[in-house]
Amino acid sequence: MAYKRLEQNAFKWPAIRDGVLRLDPAQFEALFAGLDWRRVTALETLPPAAAE
């Protein structure tokens, strides 16, 4: 079970598209930790070019 407290009379939820609210795991954790989930982005990582 998860919940979000109302802070300063409002909070922002992600947009609902096709009836679904989508968050990646990091955004979900940020949202329910009280952080600004909109500022959380995945870092782009590249696979190693060659194994040593």
Rank of each mutant, 00 (worst) to 15 (best):
E29V: 13
E44F: 03
Q8R: 14
L6T: 04
P48R: 12
L21V: 08
W13D: 01
A2E: 05
R5M: 04
T45C: 03
P48Y: 10
L23A: 03
L6G: 00
A42Y: 04
L46T: 15
G19M: 01
N9H: 09
F28L: 15
L6K: 10
D18W: 00
E52F: 04
A33H: 05
L35P: 00
F28I: 10
P14Y: 02
Y3N: 08
I16Q: 03
L31S: 02
E44G: 14
D36P: 09
L6H: 02
Q27E: 02
F11Y: 13
F11M: 11
A2G: 07
I16L: 07
A33F: 01
K12H: 03
K12N: 05
L46R: 14
A49L: 11
M1A: 15
R17M: 03
A33P: 00
P14R: 04
R22L: 08
P47A: 15
A30V: 02
F32D: 02
P47C: 08
P25Q: 07
A2S: 14
Q8G: 03
A33M: 05
A50T: 06
R22I: 06
L23P: 02
K4S: 08
I16V: 14
L35C: 05
R39D: 11
T45N: 04
A50M: 09
P48I: 06
G19F: 01
L21G: 02
F32W: 08
G34A: 05
M1Q: 11
D36T: 08
A30W: 01
A26Q: 09
L35N: 11
P47M: 09
V40T: 08
L46S: 14
M1Y: 10
R5Q: 11
A10R: 15
R17A: 05
A50N: 04
A51E: 09
V20S: 00
A10H: 10
A26T: 02
L21F: 07
P47F: 05
F11C: 08
D24I: 12
A26L: 10
K4F: 00
R38W: 02
Y3L: 10
P14V: 02
E44L: 12
Q8P: 00
R5I: 01
A26R: 12
